[in-house]
Amino acid sequence: MKLTGEPGKVEALAEEAVVAACTLADAADPSRWSAGAVEDAASALEVLAGALAQLDPECAEILSVVPVAAAAVVERAEQAGAGTTASEAGGRAAAGTSAALRQALAAHGLTRHRVHQLGAALVTVTLDAPEAQALAVLLSRRDALPRQVQPDDTGWGAGPAKTAAAALTDALRAHGTGAYARVLTSGQVSAGLTPQTAQAVAAALTTRPGGASRGKRRGLGAGFKGIAAS
């Protein structure tokens, strides 16, 4: 990524955008939002995310969650405006998806994880880098890495966490569209997927031969520690 330090039109417009956002935040409270205002604000988030995504592919990957999250917020606002909310059955289904995914991960010995349902359209899974790599292996069609890592392979091999995130992204996308995985500042790997993809992942882990692995990670070997940094 190459950035210029010289002021220009983009810098001025970005400053105007943040001033407008601050003004909106100061004026808004839960009782003042309308469905239309929520949709406009969500659209602004998507436009800004799309602009920042042009910086480089990694930024695009990081920001890929924004359209999904914005759509979920707009959907909730529309339901509230119509005097309806997500059905009780829908709420049970969402909770069931998260619970099934937690159980499927634990069945393979992946216990150090956090699963969150964010609205109606996004499930996130946060894992340590070795467990993210282990999940990628479990979800691949073969008991091997989804892709062989080469030292000069751009985007791969840049440390254990980035390698695990890249492998997990490939593995998740085989089970549904829109999935991603990225490295957090904590060094953990966070994956985002739709509820449908989360269900497919849970089903794949459950039906995988040896799914009830008594805490052992199938196919990883006794000394699996994740990929070491080169």
Rank of each mutant, 00 (worst) to 15 (best):
P67L: 15
Q79T: 12
A120C: 00
D170T: 15
V137R: 15
Q103R: 05
E88N: 04
E88A: 03
A132L: 03
G81P: 02
A166P: 00
G159W: 14
A93L: 01
L105R: 00
L110V: 15
A82E: 07
T124H: 05
R173K: 10
V65M: 10
A144M: 09
A94Q: 08
A134L: 11
A144I: 11
T111N: 09
R141K: 14
H113I: 10
D56P: 03
L168A: 03
V73N: 01
L105I: 02
E78C: 07
L122S: 02
A82Q: 06
R112Q: 03
P130E: 13
P160D: 14
G83Q: 07
V74N: 03
V149S: 10
P151M: 13
A107W: 00
A161C: 07
G159D: 13
A158H: 11
D56Q: 08
L172N: 05
A93P: 00
S140I: 09
A165S: 04
T85D: 05
Q117C: 00
A95Q: 00
L139T: 11
L122T: 05
A86C: 06
A104W: 03
T163V: 13
T169G: 11
D153Y: 13
G119F: 12
S87E: 04
D170P: 02
S64Q: 13
V73Y: 07
E61K: 06
R92I: 05
L63A: 09
L63C: 08
R147N: 14
L172Q: 02
A71Y: 10
R76D: 14
A107M: 02
L168F: 00
P146A: 10
D152Q: 08
Q133V: 02
Q148C: 11
S140V: 10
A136Y: 12
T163N: 09
H108P: 01
S98A: 13
T163F: 10
